[in-house]
């Protein structure tokens, strides 16, 4: 999809100068400033900086070992950068523990799906509501009257998210019994239940077949239309080029290019890094 067409769709009206200004100069919701991290002698990330505009889909691509998942772990608090800042909605969040980052409205999925295997599909998504509900240990054990209302709304909202990803009819089965494609969708539903402002998807299309990937693509665009900001790591270039507004390219821990899909595709340094890779556009 061409950038123009996408902008039209986003605004629901023909492209004009004002819309361009809106798209290109939206306030960044997340900013990475000179992030560096080394594991032993390996420089996993080297002074990486880029910004993610609110309501956009930003993709991060790069060959294996480029530092993409490390970047995700830095943003979500599973790792701390040795230098640099992560700014989310004007607050520095680097070094905060993962649950605090999550409570601020950043949700993620994992490269290797991490579901709560022995809990039901529904319960998995209900855990997603954790940050938005408040019944504590005692209130839960005593089943205080107000917690019942909360439980009911948690359940309803979870069911909505399940319906959104198309898993509504599987609510009661253990998560482990789902096939991989549906597990990925469930993980997305669980993250969505947390009503994040920023959603990080770590290779959501890996292990999906063509039909499922198509559905995923529609879903990502639908989420952006809901107003979510999405940061995406993905190897499926077809998908990435279709959904991304902006792409950042990492290679050996260094940011080698940023820009729209079209710009990135023409960038010689990117082409060199991907030499021999089929772009599938």
């Amino acid at each position: 999809m061409a950038f123009h067409a996408k902008a039209e769709k986003y605004l629901g009206e023909p492209l004009c100068l004002g819309a361009l200004v809106v798209i290109l100069f939206t306030m960044p919701i997340l900013e990475l400033q000179d992030i560096s991290l080394a594991f032993g002698g390996l420089q996993a990330l080297d002074k990486v900086s880029f910004a993610v505009g609110a309501g956009t889909v930003q993709a991060v691509i790069g060959p294996n070992g480029a530092g993409k998942t490390t970047l995700f772990n830095l943003i979500t608090g599973f790792l701390s950068p040795q230098a640099g800042k992560v700014v989310f909605q004007d607050q520095e969040i680097q070094g905060r523990p993962p649950h605090q980052v999550a409570q601020m409205g950043i949700a993620r999925t994992f490269q290797l799906v991490q579901l709560f295997d022995h809990m039901t599909v529904l319960e998995n998504v209900m855990v997603g509501r954790h940050r938005l509900s408040r019944a504590g240990l005692l209130a839960g054990a005593l089943r205080l009257p107000w917690t019942r209302g909360e439980e009911k709304s948690i359940k309803e909202r979870a069911l909505e998210e399940l319906a959104f990803v198309g898993l509504g009819d599987r609510a009661q089965q253990p998560a482990a019994t789902l096939p991989l494609g549906l597990k990925r969708l469930l993980e997305i539903a669980r993250a969505l239940a947390a009503e994040p402002t920023l959603l990080l998807l770590d290779e959501p299309a890996s292990g999906l077949d063509a039909v499922e990937t198509e559905r995923l693509q529609e879903m990502i665009l639908a989420l952006r239309d809901r107003g979510l900001t999405i940061l995406l790591v993905e190897h499926d270039m077809g998908l990435t080029m279709e959904v991304a507004d902006q792409i950042a390219v990492l290679n050996y821990g260094q940011l080698i290019a940023t820009g729209t899909p079209r710009e990135v595709q023409r960038n010689e340094e990117v082409i060199a890094a991907y030499l021999g890779t089929d772009w599938q556009t």
Binding site: H130, A191, A194
Partner: peptide
């Protein structure tokens, strides 16, 4: 239960 089955995933949801 979430903590038991996947501590990282539980943390990523704000637990």
């Amino acid at each position: 239960r979430a903590l038991h089955e996947g501590e990282a995933a539980a943390q990523s949801l704000g637990v």
